[in-house]
Design a binder for these strands. Structure first.
Lengths: 345, 345
DNA sequence: GTGAAAGCGCTAACAT
DNA sequence: ATGTTAGCGCTTTCAC
C-alpha cells in the first residue's frame, strides 16, 4: 500500500474509531488526554493530513474566502485594492483559509453570471473591496454567506465593513494646510458618489467652516467622473479656468493630486512655492514623484487583514453581528506643502 | 425540499442515470446529442451547479493552482512578482481554476513545514515565482504535481519555465547606450547568483565586447547582496570610490537604478547630463521618478498568464513535456539617457 | 449510449 | 469518552 494514509489508517493503527480520530483532528468533543495524545502520535508517525475536499464534502465548508473586486479596480495600475488583497492573503494564512479572487463587472444579473466560487459552494465567506453592484451583494447575502465590505459602505443594508477614517484624514489634510497659513484651499474631488470621496469632501468643507474660511463654489471641483490622474489634470484645468486663485489644493486622492501636479507644472507653476498640494491614500508613487507628495496614509494591507479577521469571526459565529471598523490614517508631510510665502489680503 | 439541486435531482428529472448526467457535465464519453440536450435543459431549469468539493473528492482534483513565492518577494514593496501573480489570477479564471497563494521561507525541511495546499491535496499544479529553495521544488516534483517556474530556472532539474529574455533585454540596454556615444558603461548588478542577473551581466559584457569596448573590472559592481534600492545606492558609491569614471550606468534592475540615481543626485551629479542610466524591469515608479527612467520593459502580467497556460496544459496532458518560454522585452527610452555631450577619450 | 454500483475520505448524529 | 452508522455529491469502472 503506497497510498497516502487516510483517517481510516490512523484509526486502525491507533486502535480507535474514525470518529474519535476526527474529533482529535478538529480538537472538538470530549476526548481523554491520553487518547488524544496517542492519536496525535499516530498522526505524526503516518504523516497524516486530512484531504481538503473530503472535509469539505462532509462538513460543507470549503476553507476558502472569496474576494470580490470590480474589474476596473483590478485592472487599474494604481495598486490600492491590490494592496488590500495582499493584506488578506497574509492574514488568511494565519487562519488556515485561502483567498479566492474574482472580479465582477458593474452589472449584475444572477441569471447571467454569478462568481463561480458561489455556484460551486467553494467559499465560506466573502470580502468585497470597493464599490460593486448592490444586487450582487444582496444575492450573496441571500446565500447566507458572511460578507465584509472593505472601503465601501451601504447605508440601507447592514454589513460589516472596514473603512478608511476618511473624515479624520481629510480634516488632517486641511488643517495641515491651514496651519501653514493657507486659506484659499481648493478641493479637487472625483466621483463624489463614492462614499469615501463624499466623506473627504464634507470633512474638507467642515474644517474650513470651523476655521472661519469661506470660499466660493469655484474652489470645489467635484464633477469629475474619473478619480484618476487624467481626472486630476482636467479638474485642475477647470479649477483655474473658473477664476479661482487657490494657494493650495486638497485632492481627494493621490492619483488626482498627481494629475493636478501635472497640470500645474505644464502651466509653469512650481510646487509647493506657487501652490501647495495634499493628496490622500499614500500610494506607492507618491513618495517618488517630484516633489514628493504630502498625503494621508491609509494602511491598505491592514484593512485586508482586518477584513479577514471579521469574516472569519462571522464564519465561526452563529450570530450575525455587524462590525464597522474605521482604520486610522496618518498625515505624511513631504515636499509638496510648505508655508505660505507672504500674506495676501 | 428547499435544498440546492444535486446531480441526483437532475438525473431524476431527466429520467436518466447519474452517470449519464455526469458525462454531460464533463462533456465526456459518448452521449447521444438528444440526451445531452435534454440533460442540459434540465440543468438550466434547475439552475444546477456541481459542488466543488464533491467533484474534488470523487475525481481527486481540486480546481486550484498553487502559487509559491518567497516571503521576501511577497513582502517587498516593488510589485514585480505581485504583477506576475495578478496575471495568473486573470488567466486562471479563463481556465476555471483558482489560484492559491502561499509564501515560503528560504529554508525547506519537509518535516518542518510544507505548504498547506500540498498537504491537503488542494492543488492540481504549481507555479513558482522567483527563486525558492530547490528542495521544496523537488519535494513538489516527488508529489507528481506539474510545476512551472516563472523568472527562475534550475539547470539540473528540467521544469517548464517562463523566463524574461534577459539576454536580449540587456543587449538592447547596452546597445542603446552605445548608440548614444557612451563607451564607459558601468554595470551595477545585485545578487549575481540569480539566473536573471547572471544573464543580464553576461549580455552586458558580450555587447561591449562585440562593440570593441574594453573596460577595467572596476566598472562592474557585482558583489552587492541585495538587488534593491539600497543596494543600488551602495553599489554606486563603491563604483565611484573604485576610481571608475563611467558616463553611463546599466543597472541590473530598476530598483538598483533608482538607488544609483539617489546616490548620484546626492553627489550633485545630474542625470542624464553627467551620467546616463538604464534600468531593467520597468516597474511602476520608473515612469514617475525624476528623471523618468529609461529601462527594459518586462511583461509581468503576461508571464503570469503564460505560466497558467503551461500548468493547465501539464495538468491535462499525460506526458510531461518541458516547455521554456522566453517572454519578449522592450526598450523604453525615457529621460535618464541622452547622447554623450562631448567625446572624452 | 446508458445504467448500476461502488466508492472518494471525511464529518456528524446518534448510540453506548 | 468512544464507537456505529449514515451519508456529503460527485466520478468511475464495468456491465449491458
Amino acid at each position: 500500500m503506497k497510498h497516502r494514509p487516510t483517517i481510516r489508517d490512523v484509526a486502525k493503527k491507533a486502535g480507535l474509531s474514525l470518529s474519535t480520530v476526527s474529533l482529535v483532528i478538529n480538537n472538538r468533543g470530549n476526548v481523554s488526554p491520553g487518547t488524544r495524545e496517542s492519536v496525535q502520535k499516530v498522526i505524526r508517525e503516518l504523516a497524516y493530513h486530512p484531504t481538503r475536499s473530503a472535509r469539505g464534502l462532509a462538513s460543507k465548508t470549503s476553507g476558502n474566502i472569496g474576494f470580490i473586486l470590480s474589474e476596473e479596480h483590478f485592472s487599474q495600475a494604481e495598486p490600492f485594492y491590490t494592496r488590500i488583497f495582499l493584506g488578506t492573503e497574509f492574514e488568511a494564512r494565519d487562519h488556515n483559509y485561502y483567498i479566492l479572487l474574482t472580479t465582477v463587472g458593474n452589472q449584475f444579473d444572477p441569471d447571467e453570471y454569478v462568481p463561480r466560487f458561489l455556484l460551486e459552494r467553494n467559499v465560506d465567506g466573502i470580502i468585497i473591496a470597493g464599490k460593486v453592484n448592490e444586487k450582487l451583494i444582496s444575492h450573496i447575502d441571500s446565500l447566507g454567506l458572511p460578507i465584509v465590505l472593505v472601503d465601501y459602505e451601504i447605508k440601507r443594508a447592514h454589513h460589516s465593513a472596514v473603512l478608511i477614517d476618511n473624515w479624520r484624514g481629510a480634516t488632517l489634510a486641511v488643517e495641515h494646510l491651514l496651519s501653514l497659513g493657507h486659506k484659499r484651499i481648493a478641493f479637487v474631488g472625483g466621483d463624489i458618489r463614492h462614499p469615501s470621496i463624499t466623506d473627504r469632501h464634507e470633512a474638507y468643507q467642515n474644517t474650513l467652516h470651523m476655521a472661519g474660511v469661506f470660499l466660493e463654489e469655484s474652489y470645489e471641483v467635484t464633477d469629475e467622473e474619473e478619480t484618476s490622474v487624467a481626472g486630476g489634470t482636467s479638474s485642475a484645468e477647470r479649477l483655474f479656468a473658473s477664476g479661482a486663485k487657490p494657494t493650495a489644493i486638497f485632492a481627494a486622492n493621490d492619483a488626482m493630486a498627481i494629475g493636478c501636479m501635472r497640470y500645474l507644472k505644464s502651466r509653469g507653476m512650481s510646487i509647493p512655492q506657487d501652490i501647495a498640494i495634499v493628496g490622500f491614500d499614500d500610494i506607492e508613487i507618491s513618495s517618488h514623484i517630484e516633489p514628493h507628495l504630502t498625503t494621508i496614509r491609509v494602511l491598505k494591507e491592514e484593512m485586508g487583514k482586518i477584513a479577514v479577521q471579521r469574516v472569519v469571526d462571522s464564519i465561526n459565529a452563529k450570530t450575525k453581528t455587524v462590525v464597522t471598523t474605521h482604520v486610522p490614517v496618518e498625515l505624511i508631510v513631504r515636499e509638496s506643502t510648505v508655508a505660505l510665502a507672504h500674506v495676501e489680503d
